[in-house]
Design a protein around this nucleic acid. Sequence first.
DNA 1: CCTCATTTGTGCGTATGTATC
DNA 2: AGATACATACGCACAAATGAG
Lengths: 233, 233
Amino acid sequence: MTLWSRIADTLRREIAEGARPEGSKLPTEGALAARFGVNRHTVRRALAALAEDGLVRSRRGAGTFVAAATTEYPLGRRVRFRQSMQAAGRVPGKRFLSQETRSATVEEARALDLQPGAPVHVADGISMADGQPVALFRSTFPAERLPGLAEALASEGSVTRALAMCGVDDYTRASTRLIAVAATAEEAVHLHLGVGAPLILSEAINVDAEGRPVEHGLTRFAGERIALTLDHA
Amino acid sequence: MTLWSRIADTLRREIAEGARPEGSKLPTEGALAARFGVNRHTVRRALAALAEDGLVRSRRGAGTFVAAATTEYPLGRRVRFRQSMQAAGRVPGKRFLSQETRSATVEEARALDLQPGAPVHVADGISMADGQPVALFRSTFPAERLPGLAEALASEGSVTRALAMCGVDDYTRASTRLIAVAATAEEAVHLHLGVGAPLILSEAINVDAEGRPVEHGLTRFAGERIALTLDHA
DNA sequence: CCTCATTTGTGCGTATGTATC
DNA sequence: AGATACATACGCACAAATGAG
């Protein structure tokens, strides 16, 4: 219909067809204006529409870039990052930022059903999809119940496999709480987002087959790169 | 910071404080430009930001109007329209459009775990908040397991109470699937929306305490009047 | 470290189209 | 039919952030 919507559709198709891969830089607004024979404002209107759909992201002084497609992440009683990413056709990745064993805070003790001050093992890290960071996590485990977990986490790089090595063959999610928060400066750096970008903060408790808590997970998802889906089956 | 964001914030607060009630018409773009001493384009940028947040809606030739506040509707294992609306400070309402008992389609039979062709009771209706339509629903029940449901629905006007009269004291949601659709002409009429308005189509299965399906719900929410929230605690 | 060209973001002025009342 | 009001589009100018050198 309108000029700007035709331009937006043209760019949309170029992105969908793969001619403009994820992360690639679009031509400058001026160049696009010349290509389509319109004013720069008209191009900007088209780019605003694409940005609203989450297809592109612009950075002042740098340019406009094709955003990564959002990955579907189902939330349910069985939540496995690795499997979910593979099901979504992405290559999962994980990097640990730090690990430590210390006394539990009041909140951690309550979440894990421990005595206050009991030892817990805490791991911080980044979850990635196709090499791009999509979430920051902090996992807290009851240290006394899971001896050798620190080494297992480091060697396996997988929560599921590390827990299996500590005798926890299976675990399920008991609860999930979701709130929206703005990215802090540190979070923004790790997730390659701007400060204040919307994050989904997920607080989860995973329990073993007997219902005893084995992990307290605090995950901050990059809201625009991950779509959470609910399936309480 | 910017001119347009300051103008947007000013208008946002006027709306939040109730100085500009729902449905009221904002001053014309020209009038706002004069009031803030800026160009009309700057006012348009501010109004675009408000429209993106869903706070206002503009109609060419008519003006810009304050949109009705969205109602929060939590989705989880226990989903009760009446209670959720009351919790959100709204007066819930329900109107049945039609009811019939017939043979189940293939999809309905699979959803309710019935033999194809088994009798089902189907109720169509409108859900309202503060007298305004917010959703169209179609509930399908296994007729053989719930004798007398039709009369119960008609007399009680509540799914929860009607099921209770049929011996289902409690039910929980087993699964929810959400997709976005455009409103058909008929849906638009019932929901007081334009044709093509975005709807959220929710397909849900509710089960009794033993896990047997008791209701298959197909609900079309007016996307701009209801915000679905997920909290499966 | 600083400079500087590049690129997006903001803002104003103007004109025309088009739906609404 | 006419006035009003929003939608689109062009042109110009400057600010602010980026990134290369």
